[in-house]
């Protein structure tokens, strides 16, 4: 019995808790991609840099607040700075749309032209970010490090295995839940939200119904900017902030969006968790689990790991390939926005 409980604690500690946090971050990122795709109809390669930008502004504001001694007690100060990060990212998105994307919209450019344009935007934003904050690691997490420490859990339960929950993980999951709830309320309950779904569903009919495409695009960028800033900040809080990582994050985020079916927000969320948990499950060393569950003597000598941790990012790609091969429209296709 204790063996089973120990296994549960072990799996929670190394797979479930980190998976929930990482999955939330991916889901928020994938939602941003999906919204832009559903309304503007292109794959936005600059989304990673948008996340990076939001996180950067949040970090800068956090530093200012920290220097003035303003904080949220046990919560990270970054939460206080996040609204400014969001506003700045929205501003960046709207400015980019005005200066760059709008022209191609009026020209009714092909999706692949948009894609190349977004690569240009990615360069520009990436350069801007590195110019402002430099290419290095930045640490900005503060407040209490843990909601629960491994040692406390062991004392509490008397188990061998500890279960640690970082506050950044808790904050991530809670924030993601709130953001997603608000987003779905907006899309399904408000007139503007519904008009966005209608536009995404059938552009011509939406025009006929008097829905203003420029307004829909405007709102789409506001949502995408918000999601990007939140996702970037949460990822930075949980791991650490480094401009370079956001280009790497692009792949798991795209994978999440496609696995769930591009253009479908519920799918994007599901996809985020599918990717996050797969990465952890495939790269987890099962040595200890097997040690608990198998009779003594049968436990393996090696780490019993399916794939080395170095290949974490490649898992998302493999899932992407499998989905593309088996069900190219994604697991939750059929319903957009």
């Amino acid at each position: 019995m204790t063996d089973v409980l120990n296994t549960l604690a072990l799996v929670s500690n190394f797979i479930i808790v980190p998976g929930l946090a990482y999955g939330s971050q991916l889901a928020l990122g994938a939602l941003g991609i999906t919204i832009v795709y559903a309304v503007l109809r292109f794959s936005n390669f600059a989304h990673g840099e948008m996340m990076s930008f939001g996180a950067m502004i949040t970090i800068l504001v956090t530093w200012v607040l920290q220097a003035r001694g303003i904080n949220l007690g046990p919560l990270p100060t970054a939460l206080l700075a996040l609204p400014l990060g969001i506003v700045a990212t929205i501003g960046l998105c709207l400015a980019t749309d005005r200066l760059v994307y709008r022209y191609y919209r009026q020209k009714r450019a092909s999706p692949v032209t948009y894609l190349i344009v977004s690569v240009g935007v990615m360069f520009l934003m990436g350069g801007l970010i590195r110019f402002v904050i430099g290419p290095n690691d930045q640490i900005f997490a503060d407040g209490a490090r843990f909601i629960m420490k491994a040692r406390e859990f062991k004392q509490m339960t008397g188990l061998n295995e500890g279960l640690a929950i970082k506050s950044s993980q808790g904050v991530t999951v809670l924030t993601a839940v709130v953001i997603v709830a608000v987003l779905f309320w907006f899309l399904n309950r408000t007139r503007t939200g519904k008009s966005m779904r209608a536009y995404s569903d059938n552009e011509d009919l939406a025009l006929l119904s008097g829905i203003n495409p420029e307004q829909v695009v405007f709102i789409a960028w506001i949502i995408a900017g918000t999601l990007a800033a939140v996702a970037g900040t949460l990822y930075g809080l949980d791991k650490s902030y480094k401009p370079f990582t956001f280009l790497q994050l692009l792949l798991p985020i795209f994978a999440s969006a496609i696995v769930g079916g591009v253009g479908n927000p519920l799918g994007a969320i599901a996809g985020g968790f599918v990717i996050a948990f797969s990465e952890l499950i495939v790269t987890f060393a099962y040595k200890k689990v097997l040690g608990y569950l198998l009779p003594t003597g049968l436990a393996p000598e090696g780490l019993a790991q399916l794939l080395s941790t170095d290949y974490k990012f490649s898992v998302s790609f493999m899932i992407l390939v499998i989905v593309l091969l088996v069900k190219p429209t994604g697991l939750f296709s059929g319903k957009t926005l």
């Binding site: 794959s43 999706p111 894609l115 994978a255 170095d310 990012f313 490649s314 390939v321």
Partner: peptide, 24 residues
């Protein structure tokens, strides 16, 4: 073989992925 014949941006994302994996 895997990604051609799908939508154009899937090729972009698939190739982005494979290149990362090759480097890993």
């Amino acid at each position: 073989k895997v990604s051609l014949g799908l939508r154009s941006d899937y090729l972009a994302i698939a190739t982005l992925g494979i290149s990362e994996i090759i480097i890993y």
